[in-house]
Computed example of a mutant assay.
Amino acid sequence: MVHLSNPYLDGLKDDILYHFDLGTRSHDLPAMFGDVKFVCVGGSPWRMKGFTQYIAGELGIGDPNADYPNICAGTDRYCMYKVGSVLSVSHGMGIPSIAIMLHELIKLLYHAKCSDVTIIRIGTSGGIGLQPGTVVVTKQSVDPKFKAQFEQIILGESVFRHTDLDEELAEELLHCSKELNEFETVIGKTMCTLDFYEGQARLDGAFCSYTPDQKFNYLRKAYDAGVRNIEMESSVFASMCKMGGIKAAVVCVTLLNRLEGDQITSSHDVLTEYQLRPQKLVGYFIKKQLKKSSQ
């Protein structure tokens, strides 16, 4: 079962999941979500709707061309779609946005009495020492100092939380990629940053206080520390899923090799195909798991 560690929730007559426009009194959450076994989250609302259509076709339980309703249509913060036992949710960009979403998602799964849930973040990232289009399955999220921790400021004090992800799940996803045999997939550490430009040592932001050599040396240190890609959500995702007792993974495709440049230069068609790779891998994994559970 999903775990919550907040003793004050029991005293609420109605737990309002404000940013989802859902609540324990206004909605029958067990009836709506009690069968959920897989939750896939990603930054873009468009991408998560596309994943819903894709997984519906893959599982043969819906029309891949159907216009699935947004369960969170009453708010403009996040979108949510459901097909079968798969829930698809957008989380926006960056740690604050995904953290808010995860608080309400984990409570939703708890109130819906879901069990044996797997949450997978699918997205894009900048690669380090990898060819563009390579998919990285995260084994551990690290901060910009390459430490495997997420720093949460609570009541003015720093609280450090673990950022390990499920090793068995990561290996299973890697095995699924080998079975698919359509694109390169690796397991590695993922660096989670607070912004897209200076925090990721880019030279093309509005401000830059370091030299190209300093940037390159930093990224080489990251590579030597086992980092294979950079994004902006994995640390809080890993720590919150771990606290909730939920099996979790991060699967991101790399859009460029940061050792060779900062700007994405691939064509729109190539980038579109790259962005489908995490969906294909996770879709294959879900299909395989459902088939196994039905035997």
Rank of each mutant, 00 (worst) to 15 (best):
V83D: 02
L203I: 07
C40G: 10
R77D: 07
M191A: 04
L259F: 06
M1P: 10
V142Y: 05
M1V: 12
L165V: 03
K145D: 15
G199F: 08
L17V: 08
G123D: 06
G62I: 06
A99N: 03
M243D: 05
R277L: 11
A170N: 03
Y274M: 06
G42P: 07
C208S: 11
G84T: 11
Q140F: 14
K49I: 14
F33L: 06
L108T: 13
V136N: 00
I106Y: 04
G42M: 05
F207H: 15
V270P: 01
Y78W: 10
M240K: 05
V236N: 01
E198H: 12
R258V: 10
F38G: 06
E151L: 05
L22D: 12
E184F: 12
A73M: 12
I98F: 02
E233W: 03
T52R: 11
T272F: 15
S234M: 11
L87D: 02
I119V: 14
I95Y: 00
P64R: 10
E151F: 01
A206E: 07
Q131C: 11
W46F: 14
L174W: 07
G92I: 07
D143M: 13
Y68E: 06
D10Q: 14
K242M: 13
T254G: 05
S141L: 09
A238N: 07
G84E: 09
G57S: 10
R202D: 14
L256E: 08
K291I: 13
N6Q: 12
E157Y: 07
D116V: 07
C252S: 04
C72P: 05
C208M: 06
I119L: 11
P69V: 13
L87M: 08
E273I: 15
A99W: 00
V250E: 00
D67K: 07
Q149N: 04
Q200R: 02
V270W: 00
K288E: 10
P45Q: 05
G34D: 02
D164C: 08
Y274T: 08
V270E: 12
S158A: 14
I119R: 01
M93H: 01
L169A: 05
D224M: 06
I98G: 01
K107M: 07
L180K: 09
F196L: 08
L255W: 01
C208R: 14
D143F: 03
V250A: 03
R228N: 10
I119G: 01
V89S: 00
S141A: 13
T185I: 02
G62S: 03
K113M: 09
M240A: 03
R220T: 14
E273L: 14
K178S: 08
